[in-house]
Design a protein around this nucleic acid. Sequence first.
DNA 1: GCCACCGGTGGC
DNA 2: GCCACCGGTGGC
Length: 180
Amino acid sequence: MERDQDAHLKKKVADEMEFAVQCSKCFKWRYIPTEERYEKIREHLLECPFYCEDAREWRPSISCNDIPDITQKEKKLSAFDKPGIPQPPSGWKRIVKVRTRGTIFADVYYDSPNEKRLRSIPEVERYLKQHSEYASQGVKLKKFSFKTPRSLQQDYAKKRSPTPPTPSDDINGDNAGMSM
DNA sequence: GCCACCGGTGGC
DNA sequence: GCCACCGGTGGC
């Protein structure tokens, strides 16, 4: 029963999101086939950069010479997720919702295994206190991060200081990304 | 009535 | 000035 719900939730999320990271050599974006893989890559991105060749595990002939999977021209909203965000505890899901309007770019939520949606560190803290079973499973507050990604679309940033021109290197290789 | 979404703001 | 947090509410 719970397992079905979990699968359902996963599918729902998968329908909404695609995951991609940027090659640290050619800076092209490559789709990552599963969220699990994406989370793992993102978590270790600082120590362990991603290269197009790493995608050969699921796309045998891929290389930096291939056209990017995603370009900034695309209509879809894109975002850099911040690197170093831990994988959510098993059964938990980290949701990034890009806002379609408004001044804030995105919201981050965690869905607990029983589908309770939590919106902030204090909420998670309270929830974990009330549900000691998670603590005994080793779920730690440290595993949660509500850091929001930043926009790939430079013109989105109303607030961000008009980032003095780095026109050519608009994308740096040190961030993982996702597109939605 | 619920909840996804957006806005306001307090604390840094 | 920024952003984490949470209140309010419109749409279902």
